[in-house]
Amino acid sequence: MGVINLADGSQADCERAETLSGEKIVACKQCGTCTASCPNIQDMDLPVRELMHLVQLGRLDEVLASRTPWVCSSCLQCSVRCPRGIDIARVMEAMRAMQLRARKGRLSPAEVVDPACADAPPILLVSAMRKLTG
């Protein structure tokens, strides 16, 4: 039996992320292919590889404070290229889901009324709300 250090909540948090994502996050060996593959990396404050490492360590507070999961556009390049077979996009989804379920959405439906989005098609509205509103 491993010892769960409740002081930093680490192992429990890592396990929670694994359950929610359905992925074996501890299998990540930090090669960085994900970071190199990500088309949105320039706008992320926490590179994908580092995010995976923090999740492994159970330091979810730092992950959830970063904008990286919100900048991810679920394109799956990291997932198809991961040499360890981890569907990393699902880990990003888990990070978003944790916050959306705590009603911490990135987007409010009222924002899409912005005139800049006047001609936004339903496919854009629905996908943004699905991923970014809680």
């Binding site: 009324v113 709300m129 699905r130």
Partner: peptide
């Protein structure tokens, strides 16, 4: 059309 719905009731697009 759908633009009217988006302007007045954007949350409609949250339907699952």
């Amino acid at each position: 059309d759908e633009e009217a719905i988006k302007r007045i009731y954007p949350e409609v697009f949250r339907c699952v």
